[in-house]
Design a protein around this nucleic acid. Structure first.
Lengths: 129, 129, 129, 129
DNA sequence: GTGGTCTAGACCACG
DNA sequence: GTGGTCTAGACCACC
């Protein structure tokens, strides 16, 4: 029984939120390899959105290689398909951009370098708890 | 002479990128308190976007309390107006959401907790360099 | 003992892949005229798909005149029933459409006319090897 | 005035046909770099399909890097973004699969190796005419 | 004006 | 039953 928080208002598209939520669940190991996702109809009903919106989220995950879609059968999770280039650094431009923006907002709230380092450590600890 | 990188393609709205860029410059101390921002016309011409787009970026920063807008005069930077509630933790829900999403993507690329901690430390060090 | 590669993922319907695979085997002369195809049960079990899926593939081949289906007996290959109008050119609209699409993709990868001609020659040589 | 043939029935999704058609026009040099595509509304009306269907075709081309989409402005063609890995051979598995299927069908219509080579040469000549 | 999102609902393709 | 396609139409975001 999969639970995903979705903010129906707000600027982030619903299909993105659903994709993000499922991606996180996969990353957290909530699915065995080959496990079935709920049908677009079920998940749509549960979350309170249209089935097409869920379908779009599934399509995104499929393009990322995290989910396998086939007509006639349930969507399946592919945990094995680590599309990791082993040498690729985590801190690529996109990650750098996201983090810099966060840091600037924190600095403007008065944060220091060490406070920021601490908040990051806390966030990671929380995530892996 | 303010320099901002704007990616005209990509999903991030241009006005957001401009606001983000200026916010970062303010956070980095590029402006004295009360310093004037370039006019929307100048900045628009320099960046190569419509003046309304720049105006919208300024409005966002004004709503955040980082910039003061008055008709007829240049926009002024307000570094002192920390709109921070002193006790508010850095790691609010929005920050948590952004970081969790980043962590999930990293985990799916095979990252471990300690690799992630290291990447975060590096990012902060880079930012404050 | 017939061997067919089927990609259970991917956008191509399984029954199509099976039909394509058998068609290629027939074209390559793997069957004497009147030879029996494996039962839908056997082939389905071997390939790992539902028997209805195999049955649908056989039906397609029957509609093309390549296979004869009769209730109660094994499906038979009909190599003689060339359903070709003798004068019909190979390069019909459908073939033209398929090749044009391929050419466009190649051109956008930087290919020239002569490189494309060479790739086509190679493909044919490979096929008939 | 862009003209695209679309078969509203038939198994190929309309959005795919539209994407294929535009890709071919781009490959044929019908667009200068940065040229504007018709709006999803206009093209939809012209072809006789819903605007969402056209939007999906545009999204596909954007993901291929052939088209640049931005809210508020017309879709732009990017001919320069050759995403060609210089060393990559034209005849990859997908191309091989497509061509093999075509060859099998031709062989079953009685074609010989040399007739097939000729048809391929003709198709390329036609395409580049 | 542009593209983007979302909906409700229909119908198809597939297993 | 599943996912996939398409529609008509609404509304939003952006320029």
């Amino acid at each position: 029984m999969l639970s995903i928080d979705v903010d129906l208002d707000g600027p982030v598209p619903i299909y993105q939120q659903i994709a993000d939520g499922i991606r996180e669940l996969i990353a957290r190991g909530a699915f065995a390899d080959g496990a079935e996702l709920p049908s677009v109809r079920h998940l749509g009903a549960q979350v309170g959105v249209n089935l097409n919106t869920v379908a779009r989220a599934y399509r995104i995950l499929a393009e990322e290689g995290l989910v396998e879609l086939r007509r006639g059968t349930a969507a399946r999770v592919l945990t094995t398909s680590r599309n990791a280039s082993p040498g690729a650094p985590l801190l690529d431009d996109e990650a750098r951009r996201r983090l810099s923006d966060l840091f600037s907002r924190w600095v403007l709230r008065g944060a220091t370098h060490s406070e920021i380092r601490r908040a990051l450590r806390d966030a990671a600890a929380e995530y892996f708890r």
